[in-house]
């Protein structure tokens, strides 16, 4: 596929493809299935097979999303803000200490027209007070947290896991329940060494990839063994 088909383009029908490539229907279906599994094409029931949109880059070096593509039109849609006391189910799902008060903000990250991720942010009351709320509709959680001066954050960690979309996540992302989603759990650590904010980003697994560029100060002699 040398770029003659672009994302969003419809593929010819199965019958036409069989003729063009002079292969059997079985062979064609196998290879389409493989392309579908890797997220290269997607089949929309009743409409046909399309070249899938380009995956969005999540940069593990600075935790930014889509930073390599200036054409992306980024929007955050706020869903809700509420003060919660973290109970068991939330604690278990997001790895947040139980029994504490947090401000919980739900947002939807949209790269027009695609709904990219559901974002749930948790701030302790003191950090919530320092958040610039006017930026909630426009900047990422890392920018939001990075701009907090007092009490300020020192470092952040990310853990990425893949699972199946819950019904609610499916509705927000416009995918079916049970589709593969990635869950990024971010924790922001303040001077006390304790996290003052958490964020959980759920994205459709086939729309994202993660990127790292690691430069070693000294050559790493043999010890890492890929």
């Amino acid at each position: 596929m040398k770029n003659s088909l672009r994302s969003g383009d419809q593929l010819p029908s199965e019958r036409e493809l069989c003729e063009i490539l002079s292969v059997s229907r079985m062979t064609l279906r196998d290879s389409l299935k493989k392309l579908c599994n890797t997220g290269t094409v997607e089949t929309i029931q009743g409409k046909g097979t399309f070249v899938a949109p380009k995956r969005i880059r999540h940069n593990l070096m600075n935790f930014s999303v889509g930073d390599n593509d200036p054409e992306l039109n980024r929007q955050y849609k706020q869903i809700s803000t509420e003060k919660i006391s973290v109970e068991e189910s939330v604690s278990r799902l997001y790895g947040i200490p139980r029994g504490n008060d947090f401000y919980q903000i739900k947002r939807l990250l949209i790269f027009d027209p695609r709904r990219m991720a559901v974002e749930i942010l948790f701030f302790t009351p003191s950090y919530y007070a320092a958040v610039d709320k006017s930026k909630l509709g426009s900047v990422s959680v890392v920018e939001l947290c990075g701009n907090i001066q007092k009490p300020g954050f020192e470092r952040a960690t990310i853990d990425i896991d893949v699972g199946r979309a819950t019904f609610e996540e499916g509705v927000w992302l416009g995918i079916s329940e049970g589709e593969a989603v990635t869950r990024e759990r971010l924790a922001f650590y303040g001077e006390t060494g304790m996290p003052g904010a958490y964020a959980v980003l759920t994205s459709y697994a086939k729309y994202v990839y993660y990127y790292a560029n690691l430069v070693s100060k000294r050559p790493f002699e043999g010890s890492p063994t890929i």
Binding site: Y211, A212, T225
Partner: peptide, 23 residues
């Protein structure tokens, strides 16, 4: 492989990685 490369005086200095999920 990294051991073999180092033994042949190749200095390994940078790694670029991407992770994605698929079926």
């Amino acid at each position: 492989l990294y051991d073999v490369l180092s033994q042949h005086s190749v200095k390994l200095c940078r790694v670029k990685e991407t992770f994605s999920f698929f079926e």
